Computed example of a mutant assay.
Amino acid sequence: MTLLDHRVEGPASAPPLLLGPSLGTSYALWDAVAPELSAAHRVVRWNLPGHGGSAAGLVRAGATVADLAGLVLELADALGFDRFAHAGVSLGGAVGLQLAVDRPERIDSLAVICSSAHFGGERPWRERAALVRREGLARLAGSAAERWFTPGFTVPGLVRDHREADPGAYAACCDALAAFDVRDRLAGIGTPTLLIAGREDPATPPAHLREIADAVPGATLVELPGASHLAPAECPDAVLTALRAHLDGGARRGMAVRREVLGDAHVDRAQAGQSPFTARFQDFVARCARGEIRTDPTLSRRERSMITLTALVAYGHHDELALHVRAARRNGLTPEEIGAVLLQTAVYCGVPAANAAFTTAERVLAEEG
């Protein structure tokens, strides 16, 4: 049996994670992300038929996304994966959605990146398939950077992959995109699902990912500023952070606790303000402070709030103190108990520090009613 060309990284005993590419690219799309993910996962990057080292004969004219999903399952079977996580970009994301609706028993978690539950109707893709069968890929490859990246950014190796793909297999993948539409099946997806949208993506703009997020129960949507259609190549740190938080169960629990304690508005603002520069720090906070520490049952949330208030007073972090006074109320502390904690800080942190803390806390408690 001929399998999709693939590359395996990471410990053999780690949970498997399959990464799918966009049409016209190869698994090199994941070069800046896969090595980091392989520290905790058995990462398998796969190539579409006729792309990279995958045989063009694996797909025929009139192919469907279900056909491509079947090839991915054959690869998983050959590697001994009964269940696996899947993340894919564009057509690779559509393959993940197809797996989630057709074979949910095989998918542990799903990440759909710069993709859609439908790709704008059949006509544009039928026309593109006809063009490629008639003229080859040179014209499309010439405009790839404009379709894939924000102005001034490109990855020459991916553009070269586009130019070197097999025209017949590429056209068959266009046929698959033309026929793809799973919108009426999204509500039945029970797999933990992450959607990542590039705010500058002209091919699958954020509205396409929001449509999926609104339909899939419990799905999470992350929008990346400054990212176009191939987000893992253009904004790898931000994509890595989002994927780690999604794949790491501790981080998911930590995010749930964070929303319960700090409120949705604060968490949404913090996520919206994340940039590629801060992505690794946010990942550290998500995995350690939120994932491992906050979810440790040794201390109650009330006790954690009292410790946190004391530490913030000691270091004079008054903006954070205001946030955590509100969190303390959500964790069950009464205004009297908060006052008692601040009075205790006067003994060990000093009267001036406690005086400023009382001023901040009084203002917050008044606002909270």
Rank of each mutant, 00 (worst) to 15 (best):
A219Y: 06
A187W: 13
G249Y: 02
D268T: 07
M255C: 12
P205F: 05
H266Y: 14
R259A: 07
V222I: 11
L177R: 04
A207F: 05
T193K: 01
L262D: 14
L262N: 08
L262Y: 14
V222E: 04
H266S: 15
H246N: 06
L221Y: 11
A251T: 07
E260A: 08
A207M: 07
P225H: 01
G226H: 03
T241M: 06
L247K: 14
T241V: 04
P217K: 05
L209V: 01
D248S: 15
T220K: 07
R210I: 10
A265W: 14
M255Q: 15
R210V: 12
G250D: 11
G218E: 08
T191C: 07
L194W: 10
T220L: 05
A245D: 14
H229W: 01
A203I: 12
H246R: 07
R259T: 11
L177K: 12
A242T: 09
A270G: 15
A187N: 09
G190K: 08
V267R: 07
L230I: 13
G249S: 08
R185F: 01
G249R: 09
G226W: 04
D264I: 10
R244D: 07
P232K: 03
L209T: 00
A203S: 10
P192S: 06
L221I: 09
T191F: 07
E223N: 08
L177W: 09
M255G: 13
G263W: 13
T241D: 09
P206E: 02
A207G: 13
L186Y: 00
L247A: 09
G249I: 03
A265F: 13
V216L: 08
I212R: 01
L177T: 06
G250Q: 08
C235A: 06
R185V: 09
L230Y: 04
V267Q: 14
D237T: 13
G188I: 05
P202S: 04
D268M: 13
P192Q: 12
P202T: 05
A233L: 08
A219Q: 03
A242I: 08
F180A: 03
A197Y: 00
A256L: 02
V261H: 09
G190S: 02
R269D: 12
A233F: 01
F180R: 00
V222G: 00
A179E: 11
P206I: 10
A176N: 15
D264F: 02
L240R: 09
E211Y: 10
L221R: 07
D201Y: 01
R253S: 05
D214F: 04
T204W: 14
T193I: 00
L209F: 03
R259C: 02
A238N: 00
T220E: 11
E211V: 11
L247M: 12
L262Q: 15
D201S: 02
